[in-house]
């Protein structure tokens, strides 16, 4: 019985740094293009619907629209008018200017997929592409660390909605040997997830070199593989 209730953590003599990291996702603005089978099946359903239907007032010469007897308008006229109005209406393009320029800093890009915020952050001596992260400080919850990490790296203008206080993913790495002897062995990174709401990235200098909004399907371009794997584990797409 006592075993079931034991919740105390295992005592180890290795000391690890705790790190909170925030994966900020811009959700897709538009739906994906239909696949081949989706297109053909939609067409079939519409055809069946058409075959089963009865003629409407506008079809054939069943009924002419008669507005007060003054404005005599046939069904064909009405149809032509509607078509003309539709042709005049310009939809916003699916492929934006930023897509054409491949502007990775713009949010107005890849409207049909998730975008992730990555920063080129200084870790030790080198710069690496990672999601914003920060060391845990005494007294705060890890989710607060993650939110603080975003503010410290990308400025306070960026508004996000944190999706729960529970970490979504985990990754750990060891520090170089000479560092390990002095203090902590490495860092345990806990990933939190948030939805992008509004605002622009204002990168903090010195610790960061660059930032980009990356499609979630391209997360595997981020090295090392183990890192992008752990991030992709809790995203919609993952390495096949």
């Amino acid at each position: 019985m006592a075993k079931n209730f034991s919740t105390t953590s295992k005592v180890t003599n290795e000391k690890w740094d705790l790190v909170g990291a925030l994966v900020v996702e811009r959700r897709p603005v538009i739906i994906k293009e239909l696949t081949e089978i989706e297109k053909t099946f939609t067409d079939l359903l519409q055809q069946i619907e058409f075959e089963k239907s009865l003629k409407s007032d506008h079809e054939g010469d069943i009924d002419n629209i008669d507005l007060d007897g003054v404005n005599q308008q046939t069904a064909q006229d009405f149809k032509d008018m509607c078509k003309e109005e539709l042709a005049k209406f310009n939809l916003a393009p699916r492929i934006t200017e930023s897509d054409k320029k491949n502007d990775l800093k713009s949010l107005d890009r890849c409207l049909d997929s998730h975008l992730l915020l990555l920063v080129e952050h200084k870790l030790g001596g080198t710069y690496n592409w990672i999601v914003p992260q920060s060391l845990h400080q005494e007294g705060e919850g890890l989710h607060e660390t993650a939110l603080r990490a975003l503010e410290e790296n990308c400025g306070g203008d960026l508004k996000v909605k944190l999706l729960g206080r529970v970490p979504w993913g985990f990754y750990k790495y060891k520090y170089p040997r000479d560092l390990r002897e002095k203090g902590p062995v490495g860092a345990k990174v806990f990933f939190f997830k948030a939805n992008y709401l509004s605002g622009q990235v204002k990168l903090a200098p010195k610790i960061n070199k660059d930032f980009k909004w990356l499609e979630s399907s391209k997360i595997f371009d981020v090295k090392p593989d183990a890192y992008s794997d752990s991030v992709s584990q809790f995203l919609l797409s993952c390495r096949r």
């Binding site: 705790l18 890890l142 529970v166 970490p167 993913g169 985990f170 750990k172 806990f190 990933f191 584990q233």
Partner: peptide
């Protein structure tokens, strides 16, 4: 993935 993260967190603190 989330469960694993939770387990690791519990081990730490």
């Amino acid at each position: 993935c989330q469960q694993k993260a939770m387990d690791e967190l519990r081990k730490e603190s």
